[in-house]
């Protein structure tokens, strides 16, 4: 059984929470890596590929990029807070993440009304797959944020610090994935 500890382990130099989140992120990199590989195949093999800015809303995509960077910054700043003091910063991060989903929903709705659906072609199929999976990760992150916020007054400061550190790493990963998606789909 893996001990539920918050101290750094002598053998790894990190605590179990940090090691666990890094292992999880490694598996996530493989998941998105496979999808980016599929994107490379489909795009290179396609006889024609539209410019992202011609099909998608570049202003909404840019706005979402800024919102997501702000969300990640708020989560990162929560690392420097202690105990229950992480709550307002994690809450701010959660609000930014929710705003990202709202903007994404507006974007999806506008695209669907223009007949851009996953079945419309290779580009929309990749667009909905990549952004949909990413949005699913944002939903998961919101759930984890709320869980950490709720637990911040009930568990020790050390445990909250571990959770906050793990969350900030997760959000940084979600940010990086979005930047790659934004570059591949909106800017090229």
């Amino acid at each position: 059984m893996i001990p539920y500890t918050v101290e750094r382990r002598a053998d790894t130099g990190v605590n179990n929470v940090t090691l666990g989140i890094w292992l999880f992120l490694a598996s996530e990199v493989m998941l998105f890596g496979a999808l980016f590989s599929a994107y490379a195949l489909l795009r290179t093999a396609a006889p024609s590929w539209p410019r992202g800015a011609d099909v998608l809303s570049l202003p909404l995509g840019t706005a979402n990029t800024i919102v997501l960077l702000a969300m990640s910054a708020a989560a990162w700043r929560a690392r420097s807070a202690a105990g229950a003091a992480v709550r307002p910063r994690l809450l701010l991060s959660t609000l930014f993440a929710a705003a990202f989903l709202v903007v994404k929903g507006v974007e999806y709705s506008a695209e669907a009304s223009r007949g851009i659906l996953p079945s419309s072609g290779m580009f929309p199929a990749m667009y909905y797959t990549l952004t949909g999976l990413h949005a699913f990760h944002v939903v998961g992150g919101i759930g984890a944020n709320l869980w950490a916020i709720a637990g911040a007054t009930r568990v020790s400061a050390a445990l909250t610090a571990g959770r906050t550190r793990a969350l900030s790493l997760y959000w940084a990963f979600v940010d990086i994935v979005w930047l790659v998606i934004f570059g591949l789909l909106y800017l090229s």
């Binding site: 890596g33 590989s37 599929a38 490379a40 195949l41 489909l42 290179t44 093999a45």
Partner: peptide
């Protein structure tokens, strides 16, 4: 070319 690039990315 697409397969080559996809394999390279993966």
């Amino acid at each position: 070319d697409g397969v080559r690039l996809a394999v390279f990315v993966l």
